[in-house]
C-alpha cells in the first residue's frame, strides 16, 4: 500500500516535468494555432545541452539551466522566422509540414553527430526518505524547478505588460494590432518562450532518465497527450494534465512491464478524447 502511495507521489514529481514540456507545445498552439512537430527534438536539444555543458565544463547539472533556457529562447525566435512565420493563419497542414521538416533535420543532425547511443548524466542529490521508501533527489529538484518555471510563465502571461500582449494576440490578433501591439514580434517571442521551456524540460528530464537522440518522439507524444487532456492551448491545464500522466505512469509501474505504459497511456488518451473532446482540465475555453 505504502509502495503505491510512494509511486503516486513520485508520479507527481515526474509529471510536473512532463507538464512543463507540454506547456511549451500548448503555448504555441494557444497563441497561433500551430502544432509544433519539432517539439520532440527541441526537448532532446535540451538534454544534449545538459550533456555538453556538464561534460565539457564540468559544472553542476542544475547550472546548465540558465544557458539552456537562453539558448532555447533564441532557437525559438529562429524557428519562428524559418518555419512558422509564413504559416500562421494558413491551413494547419502547412505548419505541420514545415515544423515536421525541422524535426527531421534536427534528428538527422543529431544522429550524424552522436549516433543513437544512450547518454546518461550523473546527478548526485540526496533523496528524501519517507518510511521505507526514498524519493530520488533529482526527481524532487526537477519537479520543483518545473513548478517554478511553470509559475513564472503563468505570472508573466497574467501580470506583465508583454504577457498580457501575448494573451491579447492569442485572443484576437487583429484587435491586438489595433491597440498598438506589434503582433509579429509577439509571435516570435512566444515561440522563443515555448522553446526555452521545452529545452529546459528536456534538460530536467535528462537529469532523471538516460536519453538518446531519438528520445524526442516519445516526449512529443507524451506532450500531445498532456496538451489534449489539458485542453488545447491552456498552459495551466497542461501542467495539471502532466501531473495526471505522471501519476498514471507511477501507479501502473508496479503492475505492468515498462513497455506497456505507453500502450496504456495512449489507450486512455483515445478514451479521454472521445469522452472529453474539450480536454479534461480546460478551466475555460481559451483560458490563455
Amino acid at each position: 500500500m505504502l509502495g503505491i502511495l510512494a509511486s503516486i507521489i513520485d508520479g507527481v514529481l515526474v509529471g510536473l516535468v512532463y507538464g512543463l514540456a507540454a506547456m511549451g507545445l500548448t503555448l504555441i498552439w494557444g497563441v497561433m494555432d500551430v502544432v509544433n512537430l519539432s517539439h520532440g527534438p527541441v526537448i532532446v536539444a535540451g538534454m544534449f545541452g545538459l550533456y555538453l555543458l556538464t561534460s565539457a565544463l564540468g559544472i553542476s547539472p542544475y547550472l546548465a539551466l540558465p544557458p539552456v533556457l537562453i539558448g532555447g529562447f533564441f532557437a525559438g525566435v529562429l524557428l519562428y522566422w524559418i518555419a512558422v512565420h509564413r504559416m500562421v493563419g494558413k491551413p494547419p497542414l502547412m505548419s505541420l509540414l514545415s515544423t515536421f521538416a525541422v524535426n527531421l533535420v534536427l534528428v538527422g543532425l543529431g544522429t550524424a553527430v552522436w549516433g543513437t547511443a544512450l547518454f546518461n548524466v550523473e546527478v548526485s542529490v540526496p533523496g528524501v526518505s519517507l518510511g521505507r521508501y526514498t524519493f530520488p533527489g533529482p526527481h524532487i529538484v526537477a519537479s520543483l524547478m518545473a513548478a517554478l518555471i511553470a509559475y513564472a510563465l503563468y505570472f508573466f502571461l497574467h501580470h506583465s505588460r508583454t504577457g498580457k500582449a501575448v494573451r491579447a494576440v492569442a485572443n484576437n490578433r487583429e484587435a491586438a494590432e489595433l491597440v498598438g501591439i506589434p503582433t509579429t514580434r509577439v509571435l516570435a517571442l512566444t515561440v522563443g518562450c515555448s522553446l526555452a521551456i521545452a529545452c529546459v524540460s528536456g534538460m530536467l528530464i535528462g537529469t532523471l532518465f538516460p536519453f538518446t537522440v531519438l528520445s524526442g518522439d516519445s516526449y512529443l507524444l507524451k506532450s500531445f497527450v498532456v496538451t489534449v487532456l489539458g485542453g488545447f492551448g491552456n498552459p495551466l491545464g497542461a501542467l495539471f494534465a502532466g501531473v495526471a500522466l505522471g501519476v498514471l505512469e507511477g501507479a501502473v509501474a508496479p503492475f505492468v512491464p515498462i513497455s506497456w505504459t505507453l500502450v496504456i497511456e495512449f489507450g486512455l488518451f483515445v478514451l479521454a478524447l472521445i469522452a472529453f473532446p474539450g480536454g479534461l482540465f480546460s478551466l475555460r475555453r481559451g483560458a490563455l
Binding site: R161, R167, N172, G180, I181
Partner: peptide
Amino acid sequence: ALVPEGRQLFTTMTVAENLELGAFP
C-alpha cells in the same frame, strides 16, 4: 484608434485588461 465593426474585444480577458491593453502604445 479604430473601434472596429463587431467590437473585436479581447473576450477572454477582463474589462480592466481590455482597457489596459487599449493603453498599450
